[in-house]
Every structure is written in C-alpha cells, then in structure tokens.
Amino acid sequence: MAAGLVLGGSAVALGWPEGSGAGLTSSPEAGSSTSEGSTSGTAPGGTLPGGGGLGSGSGVPGGSTTLPGTGADSSTGTLDTTTATADQSAGVVLVSTVLGYQSAEAAGSGVVLTSDGIVLTNNHVVEGATEITVTTPSGESYTAEVVGTDASADVAVLQLQDASGLTTATLDDDGDPAVGDAVTAVGNAEGGGVLMAASGTVTALDESITTQAEGVSQGESLSGLIEVDADVVSGDSGGALLDDEGEVVGITTAASSGSADITGYAIPVGDALDVATQILSGQDSDSIVLGYPAFLGVQLATTPGRGAAGTTAGATVAGVVDGTPAAGAGLVAGDTITAVDGVAVADGDALSAALAEHDPGDEVTLTWTTTSGTTAQAAVTLVEGPAA
C-alpha cells in the first residue's frame, strides 16, 4: 500500500470562515474549527461533524496529503499527460460541485452510462455537494441530481436533467486487465476544465488502500483496486481508466502523494457497476444512500459537553448552520442534544444514526440541554441535505 494516499477530486476555496460551524466532519472540540477553515466528510442524518487536514478550503495542490489542487505540485515534477483525444474523451465528463455549506467548489470526473444521462463517478467527488453541474467534452452542461451513493465503495450515480443523445462510454467486456497491460487514465486533471490523458501500465491487481480524510471526504478503506503507474492527479477521480482497446476497465479513485513517482488506483469497472446497479434498482443498505439525506444542520464536537454536573451524555453541538432546522429550533454551539423523538442519544454517532432513519420532510422532536444547563425541546422538519 502506498503511503500518503489522497482521493483524486480537486477543490478550490471560496473563503469559508473559520469557526462558522458549517463543516461536514467532526471538529476537535466544541466550537473549534478545522485547519484552513475546511472540513471532511458528510455524516449521515444531516449532522455536520468537522475534520482535519486542509481539505476543500485549502487550495493546496496535488502531491501533498490533500484533495485540493489547481496546478501541478513541485513534488510531482512535470506530469506525463496530454490533452485527451476525441476517442479517449468519449463518454467521459467533467463534474463541478458547489459545497454551499462550506462556501467552496470542487471538481472531478464521471463516466456516462446511458444516453439519457446516468453518470457513474466517485462518492467523494460529490460528497457534501449542494449543486452539481456536469459538462460533456463538447461543452454541453447539465444540472445533475444524486441518484445514490455508497461511501464504503466510493461510488456515486448521478442523473443529468433533461439529457438525451449523450455519447456513452464503452465498457470493458473481456475481464479485468492484467499486470503489465497498457492503460490510460482520462479525467478533469487538477480541475482544469479540460479532459487530460495520463498513460501508464497496470502494476498490481486486487490492491487495498486507506485514503486520507481530505476536503469534504472522509478517509475510506478500499480493496480490490487496480494499481497503475499513470500520473493520476486531483480532479481525475471518477474518470475512466481505459485499456488498449479504449474500453473502460476502471474508475479512477485515488493516488499516492508526497513523491515524484505517482501511483494511481482505480475501482474495477465491474465492481463499480455492481454498486451502481443496486443504486439504480432502489436498493438502499447500510452503505448505500438513495437520493439526498435528511438534514438538521449542526456541527458535532468530538469532545462531550459539560453541564453543571459534569459531562452531559448526548451529542454536543459545535456549531449551527444559518437557515437550517437546527437554527430555527434555537440550537446554539455548546448545547447537547440528548434525545430524538423521546429516544435518548448517547453521542454524535447515535444522533447521526437516529436522523439517518428519516427522510427530508420528516418532523422529529429534539430534546437538548442548553449551555446554561436547562432542558429544551422543539419539533423540527428535516430538510434535504448535501450529498452524503
């Protein structure tokens, strides 16, 4: 397993302020902010727990241990890439996202499965997105909706709105590649808005890696991957790994960082399609989230709150997003949510799990202990959150 692995989506900061409480991962303690004011990973059930690393707001390009990047990093030297040809670009698209709760934007890639706009990409490319735009190589842009995601497999399926007649990717039909086979990774390298091609060879199969938590994406342990020596960089995530016949054999998902020699990793296309098929059939599971999750709008602290009698059991609020159900209910940083619909929640994970059982539009009753030690209760209607 290569050290210093990073997920391949790129991200550009738009100035999410530190301490705003709009993050999407666990913050180190109540009321604290993540480094560079960025966040990692969307928790289920519409909580906004705050992360480590430089993430989506940092603007640190590839070659480090971060997701973001809009230019080549000096540690990787000159990238061995060329502008993708028309044949290489066929069925590959540019994915741009707005992360509204972090005032950030991100970029990645996708593979077109159907002419009416079903697109396969990585979960981390769209994770935390409040708006998604997909652009074809010919320059046509479409608004995309999330059909479903599976963070554990790093797979997401999108539906382009009002799309028809799209060029689809040619998927491999003769089995996985072999070590030594020539391959080409095609994607939105470094979020540049132009499809680039990086040639290389397959160096290993059935590889397992653990990615670092970066941007709005939590680290994941992935297995069964194709390892390549192509110059895969930020923004290539969700793009196509082509064999020498121009068929898609994998979906690019991660790359090593911190050295001049880049090692890329791709999900075998058959594995990605198995997940996509489950999503498109409407089969949710412990790992698959269909559509958009219900959203409360709180950032959770990893350090429990402390009331007059000491530590208070429950989910401690590190911050509240303006305009969300949590804000409307009067929750503030330092409060501790202790129950949902009368059922006690012991911590942030329990709160996330309770809210994950609900859909946008559902009404739930929250009970919490305020910073002054009093008990409060309110009914809130959960709204549609960012992509999970």
Rank of each mutant, 00 (worst) to 15 (best):
M1A: 10
L5G: 02
V6W: 11
G8E: 06
S10D: 00
V12P: 02
E18W: 12
S20E: 05
E36I: 03
T39H: 03
G55L: 07
P61V: 11
L67F: 07
S74R: 05
S75H: 08
G77T: 08
L79C: 00
V92H: 00
Y101S: 09
V111S: 08
S115M: 12
N122D: 01
A129T: 12
E131F: 02
T136H: 00
G139Q: 01
V146E: 02
A153F: 04
Q159V: 13
A163M: 13
T170E: 03
A189N: 04
G191L: 00
S199W: 04
V202E: 09
V202Y: 09
Q212A: 13
Q212C: 06
S234F: 05
G235S: 06
D236Y: 12
G238C: 05
D243K: 03
G250E: 06
D274M: 02
V275Q: 03
Q278S: 04
D286T: 15
S287M: 09
P293N: 09
F295D: 06
P304K: 08
G307S: 02
T316E: 13
V317T: 05
V320D: 00
D322W: 03
D322S: 10
G323P: 02
G323H: 01
G328P: 08
A329S: 06
V332Q: 08
V340A: 14
D341F: 12
A350M: 11
P360L: 11
P360E: 09
P360T: 12
T365G: 14
T370G: 15
T371S: 10
A376T: 01
A387C: 05
